[in-house]
Design a protein around this nucleic acid. Structure first.
Lengths: 211, 211, 211, 211
DNA sequence: TATGAATGAGTCTTCATTCAT
DNA sequence: TATGAATGAAGACTCATTCAT
């Protein structure tokens, strides 16, 4: 079928692009190399994609947006849960399920996330990590603050957000197998959530002293 | 003195290189730009430095090596201290002084470390972060293991090392003032050390169950 | 009707081509752009037109040929008129009607003429202006020479032809409204015709002196 | 001498560029072609010139600026002359000297002017002709108005300016020899100046009728 | 009629590096 | 020490055109 062949060339291009971007990073990746490895002329690439960045986006955009949605949805549900239970002490401290869910999603597109994480300089995606940090930084305090008269130290909240994202980053980068990643991430996440509570939450009456 | 003038040109070159590398990253940095901003010809640059990478090294190498030395020395001292005290419970859990010392050193060459951290792709320094992770990963268990019959979960040790380095990384990158950085780093480091003990140390008899 | 639809596509293509050629000139005009703006595929364009140049020709050719015909007819009539009247002094010196007629015709296809005038480089039409100059240069002397013993200075005749064409060119390019153009062109043309008589016609006995 | 050789390569590049620009126009001119014909690599061209446009500018800029200066100076002198003589009737109607002077200057850099005239599309020089028209359009009325109670019809003034510039343009383009060009330009310019007086100057009392 | 994938040569430009002087 | 001309390969991208379907 014609359709199959066409489909294949585009797909081939994406596949080779993925490899090249992973190997050499966005900037040093060569479109020529990608094309020749895919057995396609330079012009052809520009039929399918507007430019280098759009080719990169093709690989990276959907998974990234998906994760953002997932996070938003998750935070919304968590907030509802928190408003139901009365106090912090009643909160379930085991976040293994959430950890698994995120790892599950991310590992379906692991290559894409590795790309965003480490090879997206000079791309619209170069600040993606920071964006996720921002999301965490804003959502978690929003979720927990007010509980039992606690408020948030925003600096510490920021660093905790960073550490949390970094933890995921490290796992994604270095562990290939999704199940292994899950197993490793669970205790880390639990530890981090505890840190969040210990380091970033401040009893309202203590606030003045801390700052 | 003639030597002074020459020396100045070299200095100027390094100064402008630092700026350019910080702004555009190692790969995209242009030697032409550096030279013209330093008021020096391309040829001159190649008199002072063998090539682009050596120019980068000039900025980055000494601070990096210094930090490595500092770490080694520190770990050695720590080991001696640990062998003196009998058990984990006697260990001083406040690591503020160490935290301060590292931040102090790093901030003396903050630009250089920022360069290594974020703009050393395609350089011999691109794996520096991993090297520090390795050092931590090997030294800490070496230091603590055996104490009170604990052994180490090497996976967890790896992640804790990563998180620790990441914590420093984040602070270096985002906080300009050294004192502010110290104030922020102290509680984080203490929290991380606690995590190390909780997550990575395993009672010898529990070991089998964990894996 | 199917035919109607097809016809429309062709028409659309021409319309968008006109815009693109006007905006960017023949060379820089992009067939891709034209096609996509017309909602038509590249291949389709090549069904309707052999190549870029033929698309250009489609816009430009007919009006151009029409003007040439008009000029030929006009010169022929003028010659007959001149052979009827005996001497130059009897000639009607007001050429407003002719001026109006040409402007009328040209403004019916003003876009096309603007295209030929300014954006036909690398096209078979790039010398159209010169061709019109040639026509004038040959026809006017042919029409007037012999009258009252005058002959023509062919160099001057050439420049007058050029000036005349340039006068039309300027008006076409800069005046949008046909009536305004007519009003402006009349005195200019009359002035030019006078110049023709003064500068380019030479009493036969003076000829030697002039050259 | 080294200096000679270097000088030659730059000069060679300019020479070949001139040819290529003349043959194919600014846009279609190929830097590759220029370089290879000059026996120089592409990179070398970019040592001497910032980019394609600067190479073009190198050829064209100085002569163009020179002509503008010449015109300004000339207009200034003319104004002084006009304010000395009392009325239009006393004005010397033979402008041969001025005509010669302009042709003289222009023909010293004829290639450059031909380039500006016909091959400067997509360049900062593409509106040079219009700029000269503007200069004429503003200066001549400024010079003559007020004399003997005349004012100016600005439309006609505009077209006369256009025709004057066009006259020069035609001569430059089609006559190779400077002396021949002078001989041809003199009567044309005189004729045009007369036209300026006849067509564009309006007795103040007639003004209302004309418009 | 019309599609749209694909070509292949071409565009300008940038770059780190070299080397005779 | 230092110059600065020159290299040569590579960069992303654009284009008119073709052709199997």
């Amino acid at each position: 079928m014609k359709a199959d062949i066409e489909y294949k060339k585009r797909e081939l291009l994406i596949e080779e692009a993925k490899k090249e971007f992973l190997e050499r990073g966005y900037n040093k990746a060569s479109l020529r190399t990608i094309c020749s490895r895919a057995g396609v002329t330079t012009g052809a690439l520009y039929f399918f994609f507007k430019n280098k960045e759009e080719l990169f986006a093709e690989i990276v955009d959907r998974p990234l947006k998906g994760l953002k949605e997932l996070l938003k949805k998750h935070f919304k549900e968590d907030r509802e849960y928190m408003s139901k239970i009365g106090s912090l002490s009643e909160m379930d401290m085991d976040h293994s399920d959430e950890s698994d869910m995120f790892i599950d999603y991310i590992y379906r597109y692991r290559d894409s996330f590795i790309l965003v994480l480490g090879s997206s300089e000079n791309t619209v995606y170069e600040n993606s990590v920071d964006e996720f940090v921002d999301m965490l930084e804003k959502s978690i305090p929003y979720m927990l603050s007010g509980m039992d008269g606690y408020t948030f130290d925003e600096y510490m909240s920021h660093w905790m957000a960073h550490l949390t994202i970094d933890a995921f980053t490290n796992v994604i980068r270095h562990i290939e197998d999704a199940d292994e990643a899950k197993r490793r991430m669970r205790p880390i996440l639990n530890y981090l959530v505890k840190g969040w509570v210990e380091l970033a939450m401040v009893k309202e009456k203590d606030r003045a002293d801390r700052i």
